[in-house]
């Protein structure tokens, strides 16, 4: 699978995750989000940024539970709820947010 950004092609795996994590940039994120029918807003970018920092720190893609907990610790209880994340990245927040943030697929996402 390929994602076309202007004249540049970015390689995706069969589930739509980046093959090369270094291919990620904001334009790539917007394109992947569009394919998932998500229009990125500031609230989305906040989570994307949080995820990218999480990955830098732990070198892991978080599961849903870990994402909720980490969001709570970083952005507060209001946003650290699965309902909030579900609204932004339906129907599978951890998986979709990781995909858009250019992270590998979460390990324990079935």
């Amino acid at each position: 699978m390929q994602l076309l950004i202007g004249t540049q092609a970015v390689e995706l795996d069969k589930e739509g995750f980046l093959k090369q994590l270094t291919d990620w940039n904001e334009e790539v994120a917007i394109k992947i989000a569009q394919q998932e029918h998500i229009q990125l807003t500031a609230a989305h970018w906040e989570i994307i940024e949080l995820l990218r920092k999480f990955y830098q720190l732990y070198e892991l893609s978080p599961s849903m539970r870990a994402l909720v907990k980490h969001t709570e610790q970083t952005l507060g209880a209001e946003k650290g709820r699965s309902v909030y994340l579900l609204q932004l990245f339906p129907p599978s927040p951890a998986k979709l947010a990781c995909k858009i943030a250019g992270l590998p697929k979460p390990l324990n996402c079935i």
Binding site: Y58, E59, L60, P62, R65
Partner: peptide, 15 residues
């Protein structure tokens, strides 16, 4: 390789 010292604190997030 990935740093273990960086990865292990994540255990707390997974309860």
């Amino acid at each position: 390789q990935k740093n273990f010292a960086a990865m292990l604190p994540v255990l707390a997030l997974y309860e």
